[in-house]
Amino acid sequence: MTDLPVEQLTRALAAVDPLVAGVEDGQWSAPTPCAEWTVRDLVAHLVVTNRMMTAFLTGQAPPDRSADPLGGDPLGAYRESGTALRAAFALPGVLERTHEGALGAATGAVRLRWRLADLLTHAWDLSRATGRPAEMPQDLVEQALAFVGDALSDEARPGRFAPAQPVADDAPALDRLAAFAGRSVRP
């Protein structure tokens, strides 16, 4: 597929949407494969990361991290943050410009690749925590897996990445991405 990068983000956000929409009332406090995170914490992470990246790309002040990012409408917060993020990445020159941040310097295109990998990996987490299938665009998952495989090694894994876990070579791409990100993937 030859989508433009912002179209890839649109597809990924749309693919995660049914997972967020499908969270049942009793599942918000359920544990996830992300240590110490509930389903609500994980969805809040998606929203906060979208909002932080939007602020970063547009030169705005970051959102207040002490406020509840989901409020009474987690799905609405997810959708709003995704819409704002797509708009930020679509701004002229954002993908080509190098952005200096706490994690170093990178182009908007590289930051978008990281966002896609994070979003897709957490879709796997959300799927596992809620028992709902994660039907992610395979081409995007394969691209994310290739990207993180090139960007990270067993020796160079920042604190938020656990060591890669074993997974069958013929496992679905999303399982391989999750395992590479440190998740224990069991059939």
Rank of each mutant, 00 (worst) to 15 (best):
D64K: 14
Q27T: 10
P31Q: 14
Q138C: 11
L70G: 10
M136S: 01
D170F: 05
L174N: 11
M52W: 09
A35K: 11
P187N: 13
A90V: 14
Q143K: 12
M52A: 13
S184Y: 09
T107M: 08
A14S: 06
S153N: 08
F147P: 04
G93Y: 13
A106L: 15
E142G: 08
A179M: 09
V20H: 02
V23D: 00
D68H: 00
Q60W: 05
D41Q: 06
D41Y: 05
P92I: 07
T2M: 08
L120A: 08
G182E: 04
A106Q: 06
P33M: 13
A15F: 05
L145E: 09
G108E: 05
A106D: 01
L57I: 03
Q27Y: 11
V141M: 04
F180P: 02
F161T: 01
R97M: 09
D154N: 07
G82A: 10
L9V: 02
M52E: 13
R65L: 08
A162C: 01
P158Q: 04
E96H: 09
Y78C: 06
T32V: 10
L91H: 15
V110F: 07
A102M: 14
G22A: 07
A144T: 06
H45E: 03
P62Y: 14
R115W: 02
L119K: 05
T2Q: 08
L174H: 06
A105N: 11
D125I: 10
A21S: 08
A168Q: 14
Q8E: 05
R157V: 05
L9K: 01
V6S: 00
D175P: 05
W124V: 03
A90G: 06
P158Y: 11
A109S: 15
P62I: 06
E155R: 14
E96C: 04
L70Y: 08
L103K: 07
A67C: 03
G182P: 05
R111V: 01
A102N: 13
A106F: 15
H45R: 07
T121W: 04
V43H: 10
A144G: 03
D169A: 14
L120F: 14
G82R: 05
L177G: 04
A156V: 10
V39K: 15
F89C: 00
W114E: 06
G104S: 03
G72R: 15
D3T: 03
